[in-house]
Design a binder for these strands. Structure first.
Length: 615
RNA sequence: GCCUCAGUGGCUCAGCCGGUAGAGCGAUGCCUUGGUAAGGCAUAGGUCGGGGGUUCGAAUCCCCCCUGAGGCUCCA
């Protein structure tokens, strides 16, 4: 909720000139230099300012908002400089003089930092002044500087309560006997009891080594470049989620990545994010880059005529990209980025009951992605105390749908837009969670964005909205897969699921005379939608085997004189490290079975390894 | 953002009580025409993250900035 208190008042005058002369000191006068006793400014935007009592509660925000307003006006005019003039008479509830001085000084600093020519008239003196107002329509404006603060900031927060929820019973996390070490790690991390080993998560090195992605120093921190193999995996994951949600009836849309903060609903939803927004100013707009697809989705829904017969209704978008201005020290690898791609589905439901049914079905969808991606998720369900009291039995049943014990967080009161959410996390090599899929029941945005549907009684109703990212961000999925591979190294060779691996089959010809045969064989696989390449480099077989292992190729076939006449091949199978004799069709069938139901894209690399580029 | 640490050929690193760079892998060329995790020889490749300072002289010492890692906090 937004609170609006008393606020700073400013009067803005676009003047031909202003000059002032100090007369005598008051008790609260600030010390000034001789030259400040009398000054004149030409073509100035004069900002008469009264700092109010309430402004003392959040001086930083007041300064920020005042500066914003001043800049807005300044850009519309052709003034040369800004003059901040303390003017107590605008207010009947003044702040303390010290607070006022600090705020005025900060305003000047902030404007100067942004490159404006700005002066401040001495505080606490009786002054005479002359001003010549230009008199055009915009030359006299007054503004109230609104101090907004979200309810999250006010008063001490009561801590949440945490339980392990196992078969409908609640356990104290400290006394619970964990069956899964991942769950134990997740709980430790959630409750702030993680011991850190101080290492870099291994996926960062792997993503570079395998030519998937890398940092882009010429962008902002936390924005990546993706090489062809990484791009392929991203695309396959995008296809995967697209199929997943459209099979369930969601409708894909695409919406802008930036929004006008002049729109009250946009602004209200954005404020929830506080400082983590990327903002940009154009000539007369204050814009933000989206941090999720909510903005576009809600705007579509609020402009759509809906009746109860349409609901539940889901629209889906893959946000290439979403932007969050994460703190510098927190940005790392694929785990925490400032620019990332997130599948984002919004389902609008008639009422809480319908949203709870949908929520249940989306739990199954999220759990399914864990299986398809071969990633182990642990789950956290977070509910407000009120919601739990009213829906205890449903919460217990929903938790069971996860199929294993979950962590339950009970928030004493609602502090976000949701009243119930489920988060799924993979655990990385170092035992830290990577939060991925999420489902949230949103009771606030329907009203904020003026989304309505016609109910059975022909009355307008406000719907409940569910936010869901079935896999979490694409980058985090890849991060989790790579972390998994680092964990796997201990018992089996690291690899990706076959449907996601760039080269699925590699042919190693022994000598040059086997090349034609190798390429012809490769064609057969290609025809069957299998990504295949040929190591045609002039290297020994040993070296080619080694290099195929480095590329995590799941199936490797060596062809030489023996194979030219035979229909059978010795296939090196990475997963089991066995050599198995198979004919072509057996291998094709095996891969088809393994990748059944998963999306396919062609290999975006030259089939000849001799022609490949290293990134 | 704050605290701690780091930044040397494409990659991994050595050199760092000041005297203007070195290895292995990789790359390129030649030789080798091969049967399951590095065949041989040779060559090229570095404004030592950027800027400033101290000095006769700085990769090396000092300051600022950039980038990266870990922690604090939050999240997809």
């Amino acid at each position: 909720m937004i609170q609006i208190g008393d606020k700073m008042r400013i009067l803005l005058i676009h003047s031909n000139y202003i000059n002032y002369k100090t007369k005598s000191k008051t008790k609260i006068a600030e010390e000034i230099e001789e030259k400040q006793k009398s000054m004149r400014f030409e073509n100035s935007l004069v900002v008469f300012t009264a700092v109010e009592k309430k402004d003392e509660e959040n001086p930083k925000l007041v300064v920020e908002n005042a500066v914003k307003e001043i800049k807005d006006v300044f850009f519309k005019l052709k003034a040369d400089n800004i003059v901040i003039y303390p003017y107590a008479h605008l207010s009947s509830s003044l702040s303390s003089p010290d607070a006022a001085k600090t705020i005025l000084k900060e305003m000047k600093k902030a404007l100067a930092r942004d490159g404006f020519k700005v002066e401040r008239v001495p505080f606490g003196w009786y002054k005479s002044f002359d001003i010549s107002c230009k008199g055009h329509p915009l030359s006299e404006l007054s503004r109230n500087i609104v101090v907004e603060k979200s309810s999250e900031e006010k008063e001490e927060e009561e801590p949440s309560k945490f339980y392990i929820l196992h078969d409908g019973e609640l356990y104290n996390p400290a006394e619970y006997t964990y069956q899964s070490s991942d769950m134990e790690k997740l709980v430790a991390s959630e409750l702030g009891k993680m011991e850190s080993t101080g290492e870099e998560p291994p996926h960062v090195k792997i993503m570079k080594e395998k030519d998937l992605a890398d940092y882009e120093p010429s962008a902002d921190v936390g924005h990546l470049r993706w090489y062809p193999k990484g791009r392929l995996i991203r695309d396959l994951l995008a296809d995967y989620v697209y199929n997943l949600v459209t099979d369930r009836g969601a409708m894909p849309v695409e919406t802008p990545i930036m929004y006008d903060l002049g729109d009250e609903a946009i602004k209200g939803h954005a404020e929830k994010f506080g400082e983590r927004q990327y903002r940009m100013e154009t000539k007369n707009k204050n814009l933000m880059l989206r941090y999720a697809c909510c903005f576009g989705a809600f705007r579509i829904l609020s402009d759509t005529f809906l009746t109860w017969k349409n609901l539940p209704l889901a629209i889906y978008e893959l946000s290439t990209y979403s932007f969050r201005l994460e703190k510098r020290g927190e940005v790392v690898g694929l785990k925490r980025l400032r620019g990332f791609t997130m599948p984002d589905m919004h389902t609008i439901c008639t009422d809480l009951k319908q949203s709870m049914e949908e929520f249940d079905s989306q739990i199954s969808m999220c759990a399914q992605t864990g299986e398809d991606l071969q990633i182990n998720y642990e789950a956290i369900m977070r509910v407000t105390d009120d919601f739990l009291k009213d829906n205890r039995q449903w919460v217990m049943n929903s938790a069971k749908k996860v199929g294993k014990p979950i962590l339950l967080e009970i928030l004493p009161r609602r502090k976000h837009y949701w009243i119930c959410k489920m988060d799924f996390a993979a655990i990385d090599y170092l035992g830290r969670p990577i939060e991925n899929p999420t489902i949230q029941i949103d009771v606030e945005s329907g009203e904020r964005f003026d989304i309505k549907y016609i109910g059975p009684d022909e009355e307008e109703q406000t719907p409940i909205i569910i936010h869901c990212s079935p896999t979490g961000s694409i980058e985090r999925v890849i991060g989790a897969l790579l972390e998994n591979s680092a964990i796997q190294t201990e018992d089996k060779p690291p690899m990706l699921p076959v449907w996601l691996t760039p080269t699925q089959v590699r042919i190693l010809p022994i000598a040059e005379r086997h090349l034609d045969f190798a390429f012809n064989l490769a064609k057969e696989f290609k025809k069957n939608d299998i990504r295949i390449d040929v190591d045609d480099r002039q290297e020994t077989v040993g070296k080619k085997i080694r290099s195929a292992a480095g590329d995590w190729v799941p199936y490797v076939i060596v062809v030489g004189d023996n194979e030219l006449d035979s229909k059978e091949f010795t296939v090196n199978i990475r997963e089991t490290q066995e050599k198995v004799i198979m004919d072509k069709n057996e291998l094709i069938e095996r891969i088809k079975a393994e990748t059944n139901g998963m999306p396919f894209r062609k290999l975006p690399l030259n089939i000849k390894l001799s022609r490949r580029v290293q990134f």
